[in-house]
Computed example of a mutant assay.
Amino acid sequence: MSNTLSEQLQSFIEYLQIEKQYSTYTFEQYRHDIEEFYVFMKEQGLHSLKDVEYSDARLFLTVLHERKLMRASISKKISSLRSFYRFLNREEMLETNPFSFVNLPKKEKRLPRFFYEEEIQVLLEACNGESLLDLRNKALFELLYGTGIRVSECANLQMKDVDLALSTILVKGKGNKERYVPFGSFAQDALTAYINQSRPSLMKDQIHSAVFVNHRGGALTSRGIRLILNKIIENASLKGKITPHKLRHTFATHLLNNGADLRSVQELLGHADLSATQVYTHVTKDQLRKTYLAHHPRA
């Protein structure tokens, strides 16, 4: 990779870090997509970004299709390059953006998977127990299902962010945007029991303010949370997979099924765009249809 290409990429990464305040995971994904395009450029004998034309961008899209990548993956890579060129245009490093008119493949419409209320009850029963880890796992599950927060938001939750008196948590979401999220009485009871009875003993000699801790006393990571959820579904003897995001889908679906309005659910989830929340209306309509077909005598 030439010095110029390397410098242009580094300038873009610094922009994502400082101005956009993207997470390490996000800007590393951008870096990966752009470096992948640099490899393509080398194969095509293109030595600088200003040599890339619309036909080259189209050829890169064709190459991605030939690799049989998912449409969502292809769209992400093209979007990364479009944003990269847009940044270079803004900084007057380049005059054109060959990816401006490259059509992104249509997204596959997949309905979010969620648990039925009966399944949630079975999972909650699998969390019951009196050990230090049982109390932690119950609080973790109740909070994820009761607030719909992302796994990263849960892992980053600090003690000062939890207000047990008001039954709310202060969540730092994408782009460091903050929002207050309420939780109900079940999560309240589980959190109180964990914080008062379990967390101090689990902490051992560790000094930090993370709400959820592992068995060694360190802060629980996103990976650790996923492992705990897998253990819970194993104990519940339920078929299928469980992920923090599936609990987030379940949170939103159950709210809408029980009459919550879309705007409120958007605020609770921390979605910047209402369209990201609207996918759950398809889920609820699907649920209504299943209920109708199952119970109406002339269905």
Rank of each mutant, 00 (worst) to 15 (best):
A190K: 00
D163N: 13
A260H: 14
S75Y: 02
F101W: 02
F40V: 04
Q8T: 03
V39M: 08
P112I: 14
A193H: 08
K138R: 14
S237C: 04
V162R: 10
K177N: 13
V171R: 00
H296A: 07
D51R: 01
I34R: 01
L49I: 11
L247K: 06
T168A: 07
S275E: 06
K177R: 14
I18P: 06
R71P: 01
E92C: 02
S201E: 13
L124M: 12
F37D: 08
S198H: 12
S83A: 09
V63K: 08
H295M: 04
L170H: 11
A139G: 09
A193C: 05
N89F: 05
K50L: 03
L111D: 02
G175T: 03
K290I: 09
G270N: 07
I120W: 01
L124S: 03
G173E: 04
A165V: 11
R86D: 13
S80A: 15
S75V: 03
L293M: 09
A252R: 00
T26M: 04
E95K: 00
L135V: 04
A219C: 04
E117I: 15
N156L: 10
A219N: 03
I120A: 03
L293H: 11
F251D: 14
R113W: 04
V162W: 07
P244I: 05
S209V: 04
S73Q: 08
R223G: 06
T250P: 13
G146E: 10
L191G: 02
H249Y: 13
K138F: 02
G45W: 06
Y54R: 12
P200S: 03
D161N: 12
T243Q: 10
T277H: 01
I13V: 15
Y25D: 04
G270E: 13
T277K: 04
K246C: 03
V213C: 02
N97E: 12
N3A: 13
Q197G: 09
A139L: 10
G45L: 13
A272Y: 02
I74E: 08
L144T: 02
D261Q: 07
L132V: 05
V151D: 01
P105N: 06
V279F: 07
V122A: 10
H296G: 10
G146Q: 03
R150M: 01
L111M: 06
Y30F: 09
G175Y: 07
Q8W: 14
K177V: 02
Y280S: 02
E14Y: 08
Q44K: 11
I233L: 12
S79E: 13
Q197N: 11
K174Y: 02
V213M: 01
K241E: 15
K285L: 05
S11V: 01
R113P: 04
A260E: 10
H254E: 03
N103P: 10
L268F: 09
R86G: 11
E118V: 10
L9W: 08
D205T: 14
K77M: 15
S275A: 04
A276M: 11
K231Y: 05
F183Q: 14
Q197T: 14
D205I: 10
N196C: 05
